[in-house]
Design a protein around this nucleic acid. Structure first.
Length: 853
RNA sequence: GCCCCCGUGGCGGAACUGGUAUACGCGCCAGGCUUAGGACCUGGUGGGAGCAAUCCCUUAGAGGUUCGAGUCCUCUCGGGGGCACCA
């Protein structure tokens, strides 16, 4: 028998579930709470990807089980609807992003609902709703007020062909994502957030949370803490006149005696400061200019040989040796890491070694290479563990490990160095020269009144309180909070302007603002926030999505936070996941999130693997291997899609789609339906005597597997239990009502529509208005160990570790009895001389191993 | 270069803290039902030898620890992901 039109049944139950309150979370309910979170989708024009149901069904299964366990579950969904695709679509078709976004959200809602996901739809919102982004803007203002948002001239990605600035996400392998053209750097004033202030806390607090090791490692790696020392090298002009100093960061202060030259990054301030002193200024400037116009791709090409120019007329003194050493500018030194300058120790750093070779600079070893025997170096000896210090006066003979603190202390005593910690993490560029994002709620005022007020208050930090626009000082004036949201205006053109400004810069009425402080004319900030802004804090809003006074009621935050379980993609590990931890910590610091919620937003994080196309390639439009969930639902129904996606492979690993594999899941679910129909018609048949054990094994296995996200083996366990029911049926025996009910309960989180339908078939009321009759209002089956106990077990009998026979024994048979029986087995006697056993290894109910040697 | 993950049948993959390797599903083979067909039903299915009982081999490869290794340790090879001139 075939299931007739699963889609119709599924729609029926979806309607009935929606009419009730089964999926809704209850604020302040005395039951234990569980806040489950999945990454809300970007509502793209392509609709839902088959990857979405994998993550969403997984969390749906957990939530349905939790509710059946008597837990008050918050399982919300929303839409992360600002973003580039809507804007690019607008550029192509002149359709306003608000229009496409609304249509896409509608489509996504239809698709999500068709999957039977038990989201609390009453809490849904989109980040593009002004009532929501009002608070995204509010958060920006709080960051600004506390000096954590600032404006700075930084390089942006510039596409020569499109003549627009690109977000980092739009640069793929150093090329423009849209036109494929080369991307170079241009400097532009941008708003940045000081995430670096939180670097250490973002590392430390990883101890407080339950994240997969690979996620933890990635975040640590990305933040990139390095311990070392800052060392100051005095500088001289023409080898004589002292002139300032150059500070470097190094992780190897123990090698300072081997520092034979210094290198600064092309962007280093030293060059402009000392321009007048440089005898080869032209050459230096040419080099700096060339470095600047290079693309990222060229500049970071490791295969490229080292280049640089000596700063002629300027030199430094190695504070350890007292020797005068040259200073170079070279683009292998990055301005954005450490101090943008290094002490070069060519004997013990490969990059410095290559540079020294190319420019014939002295290479002085200061750590003995035990394998080298004093032979000339062919490569740097990077001795981080072993090695003895040489050529370093009083430190000779120390190990590297001993020398690091001793030499640091010595430098510190002499006032030329100190311990220092550096992070790879950079401040977060928070402005985009784009349209479809949250406007940054600031104006620039050049009135005397605002200027005087600024000067009088002493708050005059450039880049925070004051900026220079068109050569003129402007006061930065935040829009008052009661004026939020600052809504996006309508524009005619969505393209960024030719000079890289946001499309908003071309809207005269938008740019010409009134200063909220002095009432005079002011110029509005025209950049918008990146699409991470809305997702930084969305999980807070779910606790109180309608609040018009606060971003969320503290009492509700106290009740629901932290998020108990957050599942998402690995690709967000160093973006959204890190950003939102930072913003959460900030909101917690300023009291917008109550102290009781704790310092971390997500208690537990898990990651799903990608669903790949058939054959293991990534799904993509260009490969033409994209599977549309709508098509799968139309052919097989949502339950088949859900169960298939759970069965496809280990949840945290990538798995290829297999159209043929779906049929196995369809057969399985059809078989369950068919069994129930048969069961109803076979009331006179006797009950099977031994189904309890099979069922209890399933209860234990499935309960554990769901918690551990081993959904593939949970589905296998459901199939095994179904096979046990079928086997009994072949003996003309049926399951008891309670056994069959337990089975449907186990199935229900995976295939909710079918389970609800069959539950009704068994004579329950089904999902009425009060929901009492729904399968989802029942209790999750309890594991009964006594019933799970098998009467007989198969014990493996080995001789010298090789399986020679098997023995069926009553469970719990003791060693003496088991060994006597095992010795009588003919095959054991064949392999074992009667008195030969030297030793017997006995594992109760599992194995006996006779060891003769 | 650094960090992380992974190598098990024709395929996706099972195997709890070392204890029956290949669960479950796909595919394939045989039979059934059917005029026919399979998105149906039943049974079989790692490789080799044997009529058979049974024996040998097998978790990328090579060593090691152990009564016993897919699982632990060392090395080698292969695949994937992330970061990357980070001083």
């Amino acid at each position: 028998m075939r299931r007739v039109n699963p889609q119709k049944t599924e729609r029926k139950w979806q309607k009935r579930w929606a009419a009730g309150k089964l999926d809704q979370a209850a604020d302040f309910d005395p039951r234990p709470k569980f806040y489950a979170l999945v990454e809300f989708p970007y509502p793209s024009g392509e609709g839902l990807h088959v990857g979405h149901p994998r993550s969403y069904t997984a969390m749906d299964i957990i939530c349905r089980k939790r509710r059946m366990e008597g837990v008050n579950v918050l399982f919300p969904i929303g839409f992360d609807s600002f973003g580039l695709p809507a804007e690019n679509y607008a550029i192509k078709t002149k359709t306003h992003p608000a229009v496409t976004t609304a249509a896409n959200i509608k489509n996504f809602m239809r698709q999500l609902k068709a999957l039977g996901l038990s989201f609390d739809w009453t809490r849904a919102f989109a980040t593009t709703e002004p009532e929501y982004y009002r608070w995204t803007q509010w958060i920006f203002l709080q960051l600004y007020r506390r000096g954590l948002a600032y404006r700075a001239e930084i390089p942006i990605n510039w596409c020569e062909h499109c003549t627009i600035g690109l977000a980092n996400e739009e640069v793929v392998d150093g090329r423009c994502e849209r036109c494929g053209g080369p991307v170079s750097k241009r400097t532009k004033a941008q708003w940045l957030l000081r995430i670096t202030v939180y670097a250490q806390r973002l590392i430390d607090d990883l101890q407080l949370v339950d994240y997969p090791e690979r996620v933890r490692q990635s975040q640590l790696n990305w933040i990139g803490r390095s311990e070392g020392a800052e060392i100051t090298f005095p500088m001289r002009v023409n080898g004589a006149t002292p002139s300032g100093a150059l500070t470097v960061f190094t992780t190897r202060p123990d090698t300072i005696f081997g520092a034979t030259f210094m290198v600064v990054a092309p962007e280093h301030g030293l060059i402009s400061q000392h321009a007048a002193l440089l005898k080869n200024l032209d050459e230096v400037q040419r080099y700096v200019q060339a470095a600047r116009s290079k693309s990222d791709l060229e500049r970071t090409d490791l295969a490229k040989s080292k280049t640089g120019v000596c700063l002629d007329g300027l030199s430094a003194v190695n504070p350890a040796t007292g020797k005068e050493i040259p200073i170079y500018v070279a683009d292998y030194v990055l301005s954005s890491y450490g101090t943008g300058a290094i002490m070069a120790v060519p004997a013990h750093d490969q990059r410095d070694f290559e540079f020294a070779r190319a420019y014939r600079l002295p290479i002085v070893p200061v750590v003995a290479n035990p394998a080298g025997n004093g032979a000339p170096l062919t490569a740097a000896y990077v001795a981080t563990q072993g090695g003895t210090i040489i050529n370093s006066t009083q430190f000779n003979g120390l190990s590297v490990t001993e020398a690091v603190p001793k030499i640091t202390a010595w430098l510190e005593y002499r006032g030329v160095g100190k311990r220092a910690i550096t992070y790879k993490l950079r401040d977060w560029v928070f402005s985009r020269q784009r349209y479809w994002g949250e406007p940054i709620p600031l104006v620039y005022c050049h009135s005397d009144e605002c200027r005087n007020r600024r000067l009088a208050s002493g708050e005059n930090t450039p880049g925070v309180h004051m900026v220079v626009l068109d050569g003129r000082e402007h006061t930065v004036v935040p829009i008052s909070e009661d004026q939020l949201p600052l809504e996006l205006p309508k524009v005619k053109r969505y393209e960024p302007t030719a000079n890289g400004e946001s499309p908003l810069a071309a809207v005269g009425k938008w740019v010409a603002a009134t200063c909220p402080q002095c009432g005079g004319p002011a110029r509005r900030e025209t950049d918008v926030m990146p699409n991470w802004a809305g997702s930084n804090w969305y999980f807070l809003r779910y606790t109180d999505p309608e609040n018009g006074e606060l971003l969320a009621d503290p009492a509700k935050l106290r009740y629901w936070l932290p998020v108990d379980w957050y599942n998402g993609g690995m690709e967000h590990t160093t973006l959204h996941l890190l950003y939102s931890r930072f913003i959460y910590k900030f909101l917690w610091d300023i009291g917008a999130v109550p102290p009781e919620c704790g310092p971390e937003p997500y208690k537990k994080r898990t990651s799903h693997g990608l669903i790949l196309g058939e054959g293991g390639e990534k799904m993509s439009k260009s490969r033409g291997n994209v599977v549309n969930p709508d098509a799968v639902i139309a052919e097989y129904g949502a339950d088949v899609l859900r169960v298939y996606e759970m069965f496809i492979g280990p949840f945290d690993q990538p798995s290829p789609w297999d159209t043929k594999g779906i049929i196995g899941v369809k057969r399985f679910l059809d078989g369950v339906a068919e069994y129930v129909a048969w069961w109803m018609s076979a009331a006179k048949l006797p009950e099977a005597p031994d189904l309890d054990q099979a069922l209890q094994t399933a209860v234990l296995k499935i309960s554990e597997d769901i918690e551990a996200m081993r959904f593939n083996t949970a589905v296998a366990a459901l199939m095994i239990a179904r096979n046990a029911l079928s086997a009994a049926r072949q003996q003309a025996q049926r399951a008891s009502l309670s056994q069959l009910e337990a089975y449907l309960l186990l199935l229900s989180p995976f295939a909710p529509h079918l389970a609800e339908e069959l539950w009704e078939t068994l004579g329950h009321k089904g999902c009425d208005r009060a929901h009492r009759g729904s399968i989802f209002a029942q209790s999750w089956p309890r594991y009964e160990a006594a019933k799970a106990q098998a009467a007989a077990v198969t014990v493996v009998v080995q001789v010298n570790g090789r399986v020679r026979d098997r023995l069926v024994l009553p469970a719990g048979t003791g060693e003496t009895e088991a060994v006597v029986q095992a010795r009588q087995l003919p095959n054991i006697q064949r392999h074992l001389a009667p008195a030969a056993a030297v030793r017997v290894v006995f594992v109760p109910d599992r194995l006996i191993n006779f060891v003769t040697s």
